[in-house]
Amino acid sequence: MNDVLFNIGYGHFLVLAALLFLIGMAGVMIRRNALIILMSVELMLNAANMTLITFSRMWGGMGALSAHTFALIVIGVAAAEASVGLAIVVAVFRGRRNVDVDRLTTLRH
């Protein structure tokens, strides 16, 4: 028990990333508000980034810094996704006066 508490290894970081990913996935599944769903997607992207960086640290050398580049690209994609997603939320709200994804059933048949 003391080993787990005081010796912080790579497994700790990986489990933390997995927990964050799980929480984000739970948010996507149980919440109805589109904004909360977008935030949960951001959390999941962050968890994936943390896994990448942990493995990069595990590998060590200079070549492993490509994972940092990868994480930077992921951050850029997440920013683009957030801006477009929030624009879609605003557009949907303008038409329907709510952002409840359970009520967006126009394309369902």
């Binding site: 080993d3 010796n7 912080i8 290894g9 497994g11 060590g60």
Partner: peptide, 15 residues
């Protein structure tokens, strides 16, 4: 069973 590499500390950087 957790391998030793996961619980031991992050190794020294080799570069």
């Amino acid at each position: 069973h957790v391998p030793a590499a996961a619980v031991t500390a992050p190794a020294m950087l080799t570069y």
